[in-house]
Design a protein around this nucleic acid. Structure first.
Length: 748
RNA sequence: GGGCGAUUAGCUCAGUUGGUUAGAGCGUCACAUUGACAUUGUGAAGGUCAGAGGUUCGAGUCCUCUAUCGCCCACCA
């Protein structure tokens, strides 16, 4: 009933069959576990009812690359395997709104029209991004389908779908109500001209010749390109193993320095205390090996300050001018202040020397203005308890990370974790459900710094200090002034805050009940702490249970000479190129064949090997089907018995291969499984048994039985091969005389 | 700077707790053939398992050091 007439007289042509077969699968509805035929739900031997996989969310801005192929072929093997085992299988696909990346793509598009996002305004700009998303956002999933993935597309979600967004907002409110959110200062990249903070993506670097000033600081001499930030210095950092400075570490020194009125401050005149800290971030070789720490105006210094609890003193404002803390330099532009301060340093004798120095200056990608790091108010999520819980489930083997050594990466990240900055100053994303009173502007002011000792840790919370409410909806009347129309915070959430909820956000109640927790995520190692970790603690927090049992970290696909694949370097490879040329099966074959644990130096020869293998399967099937045409249907389903030595050998080999394939798939040794299948099918079955069968079939006494063995072995082989090479196996299966359903749901 | 890993045939890689003559794919060479398949078959050549030292009856496998390469994270005052 299924036959569409495969032409065995020609070599296997994947182009002809793949899209047709994929349509058939999609129409069957079997990607959706709710539609799977009611065989026996679950599998007693496997002791599982469901097998649920979460797709690593491709960015809507993405185009397919080898990483996606790697992310998704192994889960597809698992899903197809368990589905054939009678397990209810569900693979959740979807896309991530990828805040910064998407905003950036649309802005680049605007730039071609000579516009900026500010020309459009927030509302229009977001509309524009949605338009873009509608046009291009589904593309990546369509590309993924070409690999033959059996994900449940009917459950595809986007991290900004209404239902999903509602869960994201609920999560924020949940954390807030539990007292786990607080506001604090963090130094960010700021463009003084555009009046906006910028992500790392939005920075460009310009080669610049500048001056390195060596300034005396008590027993130290410090090299800096930015002497004007000196009034914001709150520490001196040295390398922990630098013998030169060992004696000073941990001390508070009283030193001579330049006063804000341009004169010399001496310890006698005024107490100038500065802390000396030891930090790995310091390069012993640079300058004098000691560095001034200005947490408010340098991102690295901010981190150092955080680690050693140094105060944050802002001396530059959001317009790029010195503020009142800079005394007589207040109001000057930073460049002017720098000149003046250098002059004054010379006058008081604190400038030791000057050196010409070439470095990369960070500038705004849009206007080219130099970036001015300044502190700004951000939202933080307390990580202590969440991290502990996430650590715990891995320690207790409730969640298994493979390969095992990544448990170390996971553990060390969580053990040294800082509170998570979850707010971003961009437009595209989940806007914070925070509403400010317009008449209490100080609460909304980003640059207000209560005092010098403003710290950035959870002990110094600023939440509930008034001026704003956290709520699902904008309050009808302002609880503070009773009259204003409240204003929503312009900030959006870090993209990872929403993708952290992927295993459950936006799902129906039934789905959560039926399919949570799931079983597996499979992704690249750089995602482990960005995503997997966060899904784990989010799952524990919101669902009261781990989101999945297995985390599978796969290797990175490199070019053949060991270089990283990247679009910008032009070293990237689109797997669709191979799908087009050799077929999805051959492409999947190549990925799995080579993915034996560590990084892959991509070798195109493996795709060719894959194509040869599919051709081998094609021709062997053609032979078997021709030779067994006259078999009665009664003989088709029965397991045949061996009559000759060769019979015994092939049947035994088949049993062994079946056993091992299952074992290897269940233990994630896909490459090994495929190699074993390859050897069995090509060498044991084709090279040996097929040849012997020709002779056996000449003997009338053996003919029928040999035919039955050929047919049986082929059918079983196709089943074993199906999770790896779904298209060709399904195509051939339809040519079987007794086929009444899809191979995809045949019993393994 | 921190963490992790790699180094086995011309190329890309396997080699599961240390155990007899180290494997595969691709490539190379020789021969075969129109009887499922030339996207084939049979066979062959090709490796002092990066180097040095150590543990052991025995090391590609465990330990130390060296060299080279790579990945992830953090960063260049």
């Amino acid at each position: 009933m299924w036959a569409m007439g495969a032409d065995f007289s020609k070599p296997y042509d994947p182009k002809q069959t793949e899209s047709e077969i994929y349509d058939l699968w999609e129409k069957s509805g079997y990607f959706n576990p709710d539609n799977l035929p009611i065989r026996k739900i679950g599998n007693r031997k496997l002791k599982i009812e469901n097998y649920v996989v979460y797709m690593p969310l491709p960015n809507v801005t993405g185009t397919l690359h080898m990483g996606h192929a790697l992310d998704n072929t192994t889960p597809d093997i698992l899903i197809r395997y368990y589905r054939m085992k009678g397990v209810r299988t569900l693979w959740f696909p979807g896309t991530d709104h990828a805040g910064i990346a998407t905003q950036y793509v649309v802005e680049k598009q605007l730039k071609k029209e000579g516009k900026t996002r500010f020309d459009l305004g927030r509302e229009k700009f977001i509309e524009r991004v949605w338009e873009w998303k509608k046009e291009y956002g589904g593309k990546i999933l369509e590309q993924l389908k070409k690999l033959g993935l059996s994900a449940d597309w009917s459950r595809a979600r986007f991290t900004m779908d209404d239902a999903y967004a509602a869960d994201v907002i609920d999560a924020f409110i949940h954390y807030y109500e539990k007292g786990m959110l607080y506001r604090g200062l963090r130094t960010v990249n700021w463009c003084p001209r555009c009046q906006t903070s910028l992500s790392d993506l939005e920075l460009e670097y310009k080669e610049e010749q500048t001056t390195l000033y060596y300034i005396k600081y008590g027993p130290f001499t410090l090299a800096t390109t930015r002497p004007e930030t000196k009034f914001g210095d709150t520490g001196i950092a040295v390398h922990p193993r630098d013998p030169k400075y060992k004696q000073y570490v941990g001390k508070e020194l009283e030193i001579e320095s330049l006063s804000v009125d341009g004169s010399l401050d001496t310890p006698v005149k005024k107490k100038n205390k500065i802390a000396v800290v030891a930090d790995e971030a310091v390069d012993r070789e640079f300058g004098t090996g000691a560095v001034k720490v200005t947490p408010a105006h340098d991102l690295t210094d901010f981190e150092i300050g955080n680690r050693h609890d140094l105060p944050l003193v802002q001396v530059i404002d959001e317009r790029g001018r010195m503020n009142e803390k800079a005394g007589k330099y207040a109001g000057m532009k930073t460049e002017d202040a720098r000149k003046k301060i250098v002059e004054d340093l010379k006058t008081v004798g604190l400038l030791e020397k000057e050196e010409s120095y070439g470095h990369n200056l960070a500038v705004c990608y849009r206007c080219g203005h130099a970036i001015e790091p300044i502190p700004s108010t951000q939202w933080f999520l307390k990580m202590e308890r969440l991290a502990k819980e996430a650590l715990d489930v891995v320690k207790k083997k409730k969640v298994i990370i493979q390969p095992k050594n990544f448990e170390k990466t996971y553990g060390s990240w969580l053990s040294n974790i800082k509170d998570w900055t979850i707010s971003r100053q961009i437009w595209w994303g989940h806007q914070l459900p925070v509403y400010f009173c317009k008449n209490k502007q100080e609460a909304n002011s980003k640059f207000q710094i209560p005092n010098d000792k403003q710290t950035r840790n959870s002990e110094n919370e600023t939440q509930n200090t008034g001026g704003f409410v956290v709520a699902k909806e904008k309050p009808k009347t302002c609880p503070f002034c009773k009259k204003c129309d409240m204003e929503q915070s312009p900030d959006v959430l870090d993209t990872w805050f929403s993708s952290a909820l992927w295993p459950f956000a936006g799902l129906s109640k039934e789905d959560r009940k039926k399919y949570y927790p799931g079983n597996l995520v499979s992704n690249a190692r750089e995602i482990l702490n960005l995503w997997d970790t966060r899904m784990i603690f989010s799952g524990l927090e919101f669902m009261g249970n781990i989101p999945f049992r297995n985390v599978l970290i796969h290797g990175t696909v490199l070019t053949k000479d060991g270089k990283r694949m990247s679009k910008s370097l032009g070293t990237g490879i689109d797997p669709l190129k191979y799908v087009d040329e050799y077929g999805a099966d051959a492409t999947r074959f190549a990925v799995i064949w080579q993915a034996s644990g560590q990084d892959i130096r991509w070798d195109e020869a493996a795709v060719i090997a894959g194509r040869k293998f599919t051709n081998k399967i094609w021709n062997a099937s053609r032979f078997v089907l021709e030779q067994t045409k006259d078999l009665k249907s009664a003989n088709l389903n029965k397991k045949p018995t061996a009559k000759t030595k060769a019979d015994t050998k092939i049947l035994k080999a088949l049993e062994k291969t079946k056993k091992n394939t299952g074992k290897y798939i269940e233990s994630f040794q896909f490459s090994r499984a495929l190699h074993e299948l390859y050897d069995f099918f090509w060498h044991e079955f084709c090279d040996r048994y097929l040849e012997i069968s020709k002779k056996q079939m000449e003997d009338e006494k053996l003919k029928k039985n040999t035919q039955a063995i050929l047919f049986y072995t082929l059918r079983e082989s196709l089943k074993l091969l199906h999770p790896f090479l779904p298209f060709i196996t399904e195509t051939i299966y339809r040519e079987f005389p007794d086929t009444s359903s899809l191979l995809m749901i045949e019993k393994w």
